[in-house]
Structures are given as structure tokens and as C-alpha cells.
Write a protein that binds this DNA or RNA. Structure first.
Length: 491
RNA sequence: CGGGAUGUAGCUUAGUCCGGUUAAAGUGCUCGUCUGGGGGGCGAGAGAGCGGAGGUUCGAAUCCUCUCAUCCCGACCA
């Protein structure tokens, strides 16, 4: 008896929320806007984190850790930065509680007021640049290539598990360079690292590009991004990398002497991805049966379910699975043998489908006696009976095939829903009817962008890095345009 | 912060309009048993006093007042 869940068709948001629960990824905390990431969800995040961390190290970065609290005065040193974050900051004003006089519990002790309020970091540029100021004297101190894994707080009005929560986990890279070119190169390089990771590990195709001025990070001269398309046709910004120019160096007076002894401000970048990637992962591949995970990020890649009536049968089957499990583990494939007698096979099948485990094996006495095993793949929901001999190699190939298939399916989905439009009327109609990404000409002004946003709720996701050379006229104003940009509704 | 809605068992909900036995069901949980190739069948059992506070009444999950919380739609955002 299948349990009823909301389908993507019926209500995409509801489908997403139910999926997060049924795959046991996370749940709402009693703390408003905050989530509890459950062990299975966290295991996926750890896989994301481990691979990214490896790639950051490979590109020369080191990890460090800076404080959770930022003095209020730091935040206000960079004008556009504070303006961008001011409305969503949590503020610490006191450092002590005391027992309430009426015995009702504890209250804030009014005598323990902080001289200067502390902001819970919404991002760490200011506190980090305050340190960099002391670390940098000479060009010999550069570049500084640091990353930190941390939690940050942004007091959002409306939250959704993984996509937008008050507190979230992320990594933030913060680098300092002697030249503009080197900093730009760094920002581009890290955006490329994100793009490669998204495609190779998450099996999620992304478009690399540049944000328009109005979508840019507060305090950045240029924001690079990777944008992905979710299965409802909406865009999701999956990662950003910022060229910060000399803005923070000037705000914190970070200067260095070059080879000629000339003083100049340091050039900066920052870049980050967050637990939002979990949301992206879910909405890229999952179906109405539950989560679908790319093998490279699945905490369990292969699960095996025995089907038996007697203990003797189970013993025989277990021997086969244990033998196979050892072989798979030797190949670096994570394997779980579920011989829990309290759950029936059908229950387990449904459970592991909900959790998105890429490959499921089953063996009953029929298979055992025929020297066979049943192999089911999550991505296509197909299963076949194959010979037990050599099945380890078969599974190894299958995992690779699933990884590739997911990427290809996601790419095909995106291509189908990416449309070139040349008239604003056309754009409005198609945006409502089909959704997806729209390649259109834009005159480059914030006014036009704002008008489109107000009228259609679509924003410019990015100016694609690899766009075709094509001049044209803005679909709204008819003014000249140097090339097409991507419009879409976004998360 | 505006507009709308909802709080009843771990979860999903019925009951509320029109007050009246011991607050009901599904699912989950416990035990037993038959089972076992797609979320099992049968039997037994534990579990809530109805978000909170106050009020009306012989009597409140149901009516009134206040309060808290959550969800949806807007404004804001990775």
C-alpha cells in the first residue's frame, strides 16, 4: 500500500517540503526560521563539503576561523556592504541573564549591557579584513588565500528548509592580492571550481556568468555566479564569487608596499556556497517517489535487501551479500546490507527510494538458486536480474552511468526550457506558460531591469560568460544591446 | 509589517457553525501470531484532554476576550 505524497505537478513547494521530511534530511526547529539537519541530510552535506574542501586546498587555499561576532562599527565601515545587510542582522546587546524577581524564569540583566553591540555575522568580510590589515605590510605577504567553514545568520522574513534559513552553514573564501588582475583571476577561478563541482559531483548543470549591478553582492565590484534550473523552471543561484576591488582594503586601510616601495591598497575577493546546495540537489534530480542522489554524493551508494522465509535461506543469502559487500568496499563503493528482520522487503524498497540511494540490490531464493541477483537503479526506476558473478564490476559501471545520466537528464531539461525571446509581450506570455530561462536583449540599465522585475517577477539571473556575440535591441526599450542575458524567476 | 488561514495523540486529521456520556479515526509505537519477491493480515495494548491565559455557563475542544505560535499570499533575500 503506497502512501500518498504530493507530486511535483500538484504543488511543487509542498512536494519539496514533504520530500525533505520523508528522506529524513532536515526538520524545522522550534527556533523560528532555523532547521535541524538530520544525520542523513548532514552526511550528504559532509560529502559536498569534503569534496569542495579538497578542491580549495588544491587551488592553494588554507582553512582558518574567524569570530562569530562582529563589532557593529566594523560592519558600517564599508558603506554599500552595511546597507546590503543592515536589515537582516541579529544583534547581541547583553552578556548576562539573571533570575526574574517574580520567579518566572530568567530575564536579561539590564546592567550587563554591551558597550558596543555585536552583530552575529551575516558574512565575514569586515572582521576578516580587520585582521588582514595587521597581516599585510608588503607584497611579500600576498596573496592571502583563506577559506573558512562556518555558520552565518541572516534574519530573513520567510524561510524554507535548506533554501533560505535564518542560520545556515557555508564556506566563505577571502583572498587578498597585490594586483587587480590577480584578484579578478581568483574570483573567476573559484567560480569555475564551483561550476566544475556542481557538474561533476552534483550532476547539476550550471550557467556561469556575471551579475548585473543591482544583483551584485553588497560591497563587490563584480559578482560571478553559477545559476542552475530547478524542475519547476525557476532559477537557483548555487554559488557566488566576488571581485571586491579595493573596497574593503580602503574601508579597513589595508595597504602594502610593492617591489618599488610604492604603497597601494590590496585587491580582494570573496566566494561562497552554502547548505542551499542541498536544496539545489533535491530540486534538480528528485522525483515523486522521493530523493534522487547522484552516486558521488550519496552517503550510501548501494543497499542490499535479502528476501527470505527461513533462517537457513537468510544465511545463504547473507553469505553472498557479505562477499559482494567486501568486493564493493574494496572498490571504494559504500554499501549497506539491510537484513533487519523487523521490516519487510517492500517497506525497505520504498524507504530507500525515498532516500535516493542510487542502486538497490535484492536477492531471494529464486535468484540464489539461479546464481542471480536483482539490481534496481533509482534514477530510471528500472530493475533487472543479472548474474551474481561479476556483479561488482557491473555495479561499479552502473554507478558511473547513473552519475552521467543524471547530469544529462538535467541538461536536457534545462535546454528544453531555455528560450530565446525578442519581444517583451512574447517574453511575458512564455514566462507564464512555460517558465524556464529566457535569453533576451536588455539595454543594460537598472531601470529597465527593475521595470521587468516589477511587471513579471523575473530577474536577470546573469550575463552568461559564454554568450554568443550578437548585438540587438532591448526587448523593452528598443535601445541597443551588446548581447543576450538570462531572465528567469528565481528562488 | 500588511492580507488570509490554522493550532485536537509522535505524524495526518474528524469533531467547533448548532456547548451535553469516558474526545474519534488513520498512520506510527508495544506485545503475540500468521507471514515475507513493492510501504502485509489478524488479535490485543499504550498514547492527547483539545496552543496558552482569563471569562460566560449546571456543563466548554466547541461561545467570548486577550495572548502565543505556525502556515500561505505580498514587501526583503544566498
Amino acid at each position: 500500500m503506497a502512501q500518498k505524497y504530493t507530486t511535483r505537478e500538484q504543488d511543487y513547494s509542498k512536494w519539496y517540503n514533504e520530500l525533505v521530511g520523508r528522506a529524513d534530511l532536515a526538520e524545522h526547529s522550534d527556533v523560528k526560521g532555523c532547521m535541524v539537519i538530520k544525520p542523513y541530510g548532514f552526511a550528504i552535506w559532509e560529502n559536498i563539503k569534503d569534496e569542495l574542501d579538497k578542491r580549495f586546498k588544491e587551488t592553494g587555499h588554507s582553512n582558518a576561523y574567524f569570530p562569530l561576532f562582529i563589532p557593529k562599527s566594523y560592519l558600517s565601515k564599508e558603506a554599500s556592504h552595511v546597507e546590503g545587510f543592515a536589515k537582516e542582522c541579529a544583534v547581541v546587546t547583553h552578556y548576562r541573564l539573571k533570575n526574574a524577581e517574580d520567579g518566572s524564569g530568567v530575564v536579561v540583566d539590564p546592567t550587563a549591557k554591551l558597550e558596543e553591540e555585536l552583530i552575529v555575522r551575516p558574512t565575514s568580510e569586515t572582521i576578516i579584513w580587520n585582521s588582514y590589515k595587521n597581516w599585510i605590510q608588503s607584497y611579500r605577504d600576498l596573496p592571502i588565500l583563506i577559506n573558512q567553514w562556518a555558520n552565518v545568520v541572516r534574519w530573513e522574513m520567510r524561510t524554507r528548509l535548506f533554501l533560505r534559513t535564518t542560520e545556515f552553514l557555508w564556506q566563505e573564501g577571502h583572498t587578498a592580492h597585490a594586483t587587480r588582475d590577480e584578484a579578478v583571476e581568483e574570483a573567476e577561478k573559484m567560480n569555475q571550481v564551483y561550476a566544475d563541482f556542481a557538474e561533476q559531483y552534483m550532476a547539476m548543470p550550471v550557467i556561469q556568468g556575471l551579475k548585473t549591478e543591482s544583483e551584485r553582492f553588497a560591497g563587490a565590484d563584480e559578482t560571478y555566479c553559477i545559476e542552475a534550473m530547478m524542475q519547476d523552471g525557476k532559477a537557483l543561484q548555487a554559488g557566488t564569487s566576488h571581485f571586491l576591488g579595493q573596497n574593503f582594503a580602503k574601508a579597513f586601510d589595508v595597504q602594502f608596499s610593492d617591489k618599488e616601495g610604492k604603497r597601494d591598497f590590496v585587491w580582494a575577493t570573496s566566494w561562497g556556497v552554502s547548505t542551499r546546495l542541498m536544496g539545489a540537489l533535491i530540486m534538480t534530480h528528485s522525483d515523486d517517489e522521493g530523493l534522487v542522489l547522484p552516486p558521488k554524493l550519496a552517503p550510501i551508494q548501494v543497499v542490499a535487501v535479502p528476501i527470505y522465509k527461513s533462517q537457513e535461506d537468510l544465511d545463504k543469502i547473507s553469505e553472498r551479500f557479505n562477499e559482494l559487500g567486501a568486493k564493493l568496499k574494496a572498490k571504494g563503493i559504500s554499501f549497506k546490507y539491510d537484513d533487519d528482520d523487523n521490516r519487510r522487503p517492500g517497506w525497505k524498497f520504498a524507504e530507500y527510494e525515498s532516500k535516493g540511494i542510487p542502486v538497490r540490490l535484492a536477492m531471494g531464493m529464486r535468484d540464489f538458486e539461479g546464481g542471480n541477483i536483482e539490481v534496481a537503479r533509482r534514477d530510471e526506476k528500472t530493475k533487472e536480474v543479472v548474474s551474481f558473478d561479476g556483479v561488482d564490476a557491473y555495479i561499479e559501471n552502473l554507478l558511473e552511468e547513473i552519475q552521467l545520466n543524471l547530469l544529462n537528464k538535467a541538461k536536457a531539461y534545462r535546454e528544453e526550457r531555455t528560450h530565446k525571446v525578442d519581444s517583451y509581450d512574447d517574453f511575458k506570455v512564455q514566462l507564464e506558460e512555460k517558465g524556464g530561462f529566457f535569453l533576451a536583449h536588455w539595454d543594460g540599465t537598472a531601470e529597465t531591469e527593475e521595470k521587468i522585475k516589477q511587471e513579471t517577477k523575473a530577474t536577470i539571473r546573469c550575463i552568461p560568460a559564454d554568450r554568443e556575440e550578437e548585438t540587438g535591441t532591448c526587448m523593452v526599450t528598443g535601445k541597443p544591446s551588446a548581447g543576450r542575458v538570462i531572465f528567469a524567476k528565481a528562488y
